[in-house]
Design a protein around this nucleic acid. Sequence first.
DNA 1: ATGTCGATTCCCT
DNA 2: GGGAATCGACATA
Length: 199
Amino acid sequence: MERWWHDAGIAAPRLIGCELVRTLRGRVRRGRIVETEAYLPDDPASHSFRGLTERNRAMFGPPATAYVYRIHQVLCFNVVTGPRGQGEAVLIRAVQPLEGEDLMARARAAATQGSRPPSGFGLTNGPGKLCQALSITPRHDGQALLDPDAAPGLRLEIRPAVAEIRTSPRIGISKGVELPLRFFEAGNPWVSPGRPSAP
DNA sequence: ATGTCGATTCCCT
DNA sequence: GGGAATCGACATA
């Protein structure tokens, strides 16, 4: 485990450019991470702020495992960081489809019955959207992400650091709003809408 | 036991 | 750009 895993504030930008690989029924979906948010220890915006609960248990597990939680009928996917027990994690907010885009579209359409089938950047440009596109489920909560033999078929592949990364305040929170803990790849159209890009 | 509040998304103006 | 949807987890008047 490399050093950068021990700090969500470092891991969050470092996870930009890494790839999330979902294997289901022998078929592969691959997404390149383009947007993340860090949630730190003693961070009032973090689910871990008030200590361990049933929901955030996975956040206190070992680094490079998944923390999956439900919010507003939707799932969000995090990569746990820091030494075990710190309650740190990095929220994955958007990915760029690299493989299996058709399967992602099908999964999104199935998850959003009632509305028009999602297409274009809307396929994976949000934390709930990418979970639908990759068929991430509550079963992935707590699962190791670097293990190539991971049973649930969800894996994280480390890639070289990306050069052009921008920061901004985090989205959708009411505490800790000023901290620049959101990271995204400059100019990438798959980054979620809703925030201006800082140079 | 019950009330509050979202680490969101979609649809509308 | 704003608001409704909608329900489970969490904290507690």
